[in-house]
Simulated assay, not measured.
Amino acid sequence: MNRPIKFNLDSLEICKSSKAITDNITFIIPFADSQNHKFIGGSVSFQWYSNFLYFMELMELCSDKRETILCEVLEPSLIMFFMFDGESEFSMLEGDFLNHPVRGAYYATLNNRDVYKATFEPGKNIILYISLRMEWILREELALPNLNKFLSFSLKSGGSVEYMEKLFMSRSLAKELIRIWHVPQLEDNDLESALLPMIKNILKIYDKAQDYRIHLSEMSNEEKIHEIRGYLRAGCLSSKITDIQSLCNRFFMTERTLRRLFYKLEKKTIIDFVTDHRLEHSKVLLIQKILPVKEISKRCGFASSNYFCRLFSKKYNFTPKTFRLRMAL
Rank of each mutant, 00 (worst) to 15 (best):
N2C: 09
I5H: 05
F7K: 05
N8P: 06
E13F: 10
C15L: 10
K16D: 09
S17D: 04
K19H: 14
N24K: 15
N24P: 11
I25E: 09
I29D: 03
S34N: 08
Q35N: 11
N36W: 15
K38A: 07
S43P: 01
Q47P: 08
W48L: 05
Y49Q: 01
L53M: 12
Y54F: 15
Y54T: 03
F55S: 04
E57K: 11
E57W: 05
C62P: 01
D64R: 11
D64M: 11
K65Y: 13
R66S: 12
E67K: 14
T68W: 04
I69A: 05
L70V: 01
V73G: 04
V73A: 03
S77A: 12
F82A: 01
F82N: 03
D85N: 13
D85A: 12
D85F: 01
E89L: 10
E94I: 08
E94M: 10
E94A: 07
N99Q: 14
N99M: 13
H100F: 07
V102I: 11
Y107M: 07
N111P: 01
V115S: 11
Y116R: 11
E121L: 13
P122K: 01
K124W: 00
I126Y: 06
I127V: 10
I127L: 08
I130Q: 02
L132F: 08
I137M: 01
L138Y: 04
E140M: 15
E140G: 07
P145C: 04
K156C: 09
G158S: 10
G159C: 06
G159E: 12
S160L: 15
K166R: 15
M169I: 02
R171L: 09
S172L: 01
S172C: 05
K175M: 05
I178G: 00
W181F: 15
Q185L: 03
A194D: 11
A194R: 06
P197K: 07
M198K: 05
I199E: 00
N201W: 05
N201I: 00
I202D: 01
I205D: 00
K208N: 06
Q210S: 05
K224M: 13
I228Q: 00
R229S: 07
R229W: 00
R229M: 11
G230L: 04
A234H: 08
L247K: 08
C248T: 13
C248N: 06
N249P: 01
F262D: 00
Y263E: 12
Y263A: 06
K267V: 03
V274H: 03
T275H: 02
D276W: 02
D276V: 04
H281K: 12
L285Q: 11
L285A: 04
L286E: 11
I287W: 03
Q288F: 10
I290F: 13
L291R: 10
P292E: 14
V293K: 11
K294R: 15
A303C: 12
S304C: 04
S304M: 06
Y307P: 06
Y307L: 12
R310T: 05
K314V: 10
K314D: 07
K315N: 12
N317G: 13
F318L: 15
F318N: 05
K321V: 13
T322C: 10
T322Q: 15
T322N: 13
R324D: 06
L325T: 09
L325W: 05
R326I: 14
L329C: 12
